[in-house]
Design a protein around this nucleic acid. Structure first.
Length: 593
RNA sequence: GGUCUAGUAGCUCAGUUGGAUUAGAGCAACGGCCUUCUAAGCCGUAGGUCCCAGGUUCGAGCCCUGGCUAGAUCACCA
């Protein structure tokens, strides 16, 4: 409809004022609540062309549209705003079409093949709330892009090598050398994470002792025996030492088992998992090649650098003096490999905003190396999750653990539910599933409703809400509608497959239809902006509107059968849209709660 | 010091190509509504110098400039 109106406006301006204008300068927006109308055209851009007052200009165009669009019922003009209202037949037809064919997808004209990399954990510590935000954003963005018709491939890049893993390994040898998660009765990732904390405690103790015995702080940090041991272990690992590799594989396997359980609980999946131990050497050839082409330069010590001072990005090292790869080198290598092997149109990296600089540099370097797709890498930067006292620190145990948080929330959800006592007809398993669905709904919605790029503060002492602007609010609205549909069925009234053209609607019903109609645009905008928050807000607004309606009008006690059928039809579509919207956030909705 | 990001109600946040007298939600506070389709709901009251100062224009919370505050980053760590 918007497209048609644009075309008619362009036509109108040409006929009325003899001026050709571009489709894009026709501004169409939803009419604000306090004014009459469905869509609004802003006529200020045409005022100069028309050489008329805004009001007159709007009236001219309004009349032209009225004569050329049968679905238009009326128009009104306030200042430079032309408000258009459509006939109720038009809206009923829209609702009917949506009900018949809308499946939660809104494909764009030009679908792309997009790889989304997210999660990317280290194997020395369990997942915490920061990872949860990353996972949820990555998951939701992938779902939204898919709904917008793109071919999406979700991948995880596990950082499974380096000094941090060696620290956990060293602590294992020193403190629990024949232990295991089973013996300790712990999840594998927790067990290894605890060893990492133990390493840090031991290390700090040793440093303190050395300083006491007269050593400088810098020296003490270098010479602490446990750190030395960890470094030696890393060298052995790099040299392919069998014993070290065996231990490394054993401990990583524990961690993966733990991660898998957490991912499963959160409902997160990947098409492919990459491991850094396989890719950490890549990119070296490409850099050497770039050196020949003069994109990089070599310093006296043999290290290779990119001079980005002309782009205000300083100088960046891309290869060590000993010729080995760095983080940047690897990312250059994997990007090239992925674009060339997978024929990607776009690559999105869901990575915290602390790495904004890294990705700016990566993009710039790839461009200078002459890759035409350099502009197609996109850093989906999101803000940190902080505690009231500041950043989370795994080493000091100051973290909100993902599993603990989810379990706590399931407990809360279960307590609340039992108090309300609405699930008594269900089996224990079914009840648990609903409790879990609601807990995850609250957590996911909480993290996804806010703008991803902003930092957020999480106070563990204040539990995440289940009332108000929350996931459970929307889940509840859905469950209420499903309950009505069930009751109707029990009365032998099924949701009809179409609506009568001459149904008499009230304003709230009309508003709901307009809101339902809005969803496809919202999906496409959210995909464009990579912003799950837009979907979250849409679902909330729709649920809120429906709750007003539900409060004011009875569906099952409508005045006559025809109206009852229409209301059921409308409510059913609201529940579908809520379900689709929540699915895009990775949230399931219950039939009862 | 350079670069980047953010600053909206007591708290958490919406407000996206700049739009329409009175800047919206939720939480917390206060007051109402359950013999009527699920009260995890609905209605109402109260709460604001949209960080500050200039500028651009028909119009600025949004754009530009300068400042203030907070954070990130500029490593032969990833």
């Amino acid at each position: 409809m918007r497209k048609r109106i644009r075309e008619i406006v362009v036509e109108a301006v040409e006929v009325l004022y003899g001026q050709k204008i571009d489709l894009k300068i026709v501004q169409i927006q939803r009419t604000r609540k306090d004014f009459t109308g469905d869509l609004t055209i802003v006529v200020f851009p045409f005022v100069k062309l028309a050489k008329k007052k805004p009001e007159d200009c709007a009236n001219d165009i309004g009349l032209y549209i009225k004569n050329n669009l049968e679905q238009l019922s009326s128009y009104n003009v306030i200042k430079g705003f032309l408000n258009l209202s459509f006939t109720s037949e038009y809206w009923l037809e829209r609702l009917g079409n949506i009900h018949k064919s809308f499946d939660g997808n809104a494909p764009v004209d030009q679908p792309e093949k997009i790889m989304v990399e997210f999660s990317s954990p280290n194997t020395n510590k369990p997942l915490h709330l920061g990872h949860v935000r990353n996972n949820l954003i990555g998951d939701s963005v992938s779902r939204i892009l898919k709904a917008a018709g793109h071919d999406v491939m979700r991948v995880n890049l596990v950082n499974d090598r380096g000094i941090h893993i060696c620290k956990s390994m060293q602590a294992y040898l020193d403190f629990d050398s024949d232990g295991s998660p089973d013996k300790a009765g712990m999840k594998g990732d927790k067990y290894v994470g605890d060893l990492y904390v133990k390493f840090d405690q031991q290390y700090k103790g040793q440093v303190a002792d050395l300083i006491e015995s007269g050593m400088s702080e810098d020296d003490a940090k270098q010479k602490a025996p446990i750190m030395q041991a960890a470094k030696t272990m890393l060298q052995k690992w790099e040299a392919g030492d069998e014993e070290v590799h065996a231990l490394w594989e054993k401990m990583n396997a524990w961690v993966y088992e733990g991660f898998d359980r957490t991912y499963e609980k959160m409902g997160i999946e990947f098409e492919k998992t990459y491991y850094e131990s396989n890719t950490y050497k890549s990119g070296r050839e490409i850099v050497l090649n770039g050196l020949e082409k003069g994109v990089f330069y070599k310093r006296e010590d043999g290290s290779v650098w990119a001079d980005l001072t002309d782009a205000k990005l300083d100088e960046k090292i891309v290869l060590r003096a000993d010729g080995t790869s760095l983080y940047m080198t690897q990312d250059i290598g994997t990007a090239v490999e992925r674009f060339e092997n997978q024929q990607l149109d776009r690559h999105i990296y869901v990575v915290g905003n602390e790495q904004n600089y890294h990705f700016q540099v990566l993009k710039l370097i790839l461009g200078r190396l002459g890759y035409p797709w350099a502009e197609k890498i996109q850093h989906m930067s999101y803000g940190m999750v902080e505690l009231p006292e500041g950043k989370m620190k795994s080493r000091e145990g100051k973290v909100v653990d993902a599993d603990d948080l989810i379990d706590d929330m399931i407990q809360t959800s279960s307590d609340m539910s039992k108090e309300l006592g609405k699930l008594e007809s269900l089996s224990d398993d079914e009840q648990y599933n609903v409790h879990k669905m609601i807990a995850l709904g609250a957590l996911k919605y909480f993290m996804l409703k806010v703008d991803p790029k902003k930092n957020m503060i999480f106070n563990p002492k204040e539990s995440i809400d289940f009332n108000g602007h929350t996931g459970p609010f929307i889940q509840y609205t859905h469950a209420r509608i499903r309950s009505v549909v069930r009751k109707a069925k029990a009365m032998n009234i099924n949701v009809p497959t179409s609506v009568a053209e001459d149904t008499k609607m009230n304003d709230k019903e009309l508003d709901l239809i307009k809101y339902i109609d809005q969803f496809e645009i919202v999906i496409q905008e959210a995909a464009e902006e990579l912003d799950p928050g837009m979907i979250a807000n849409y679902a909330y607004d729709l649920a809120k509107d429906f709750n007003h309606y539900y409060h004011d009008y009875s569906i099952l006690k409508a005045q006559d059968g025809k109206l009852l059928q229409f209301r059921l039809f409308l409510a059913d579509q609201v529940s579908k849209n809520l379900k689709f919207a929540m699915k895009l956030l990775g949230i399931d909705v219950p039939e009862i709660m």
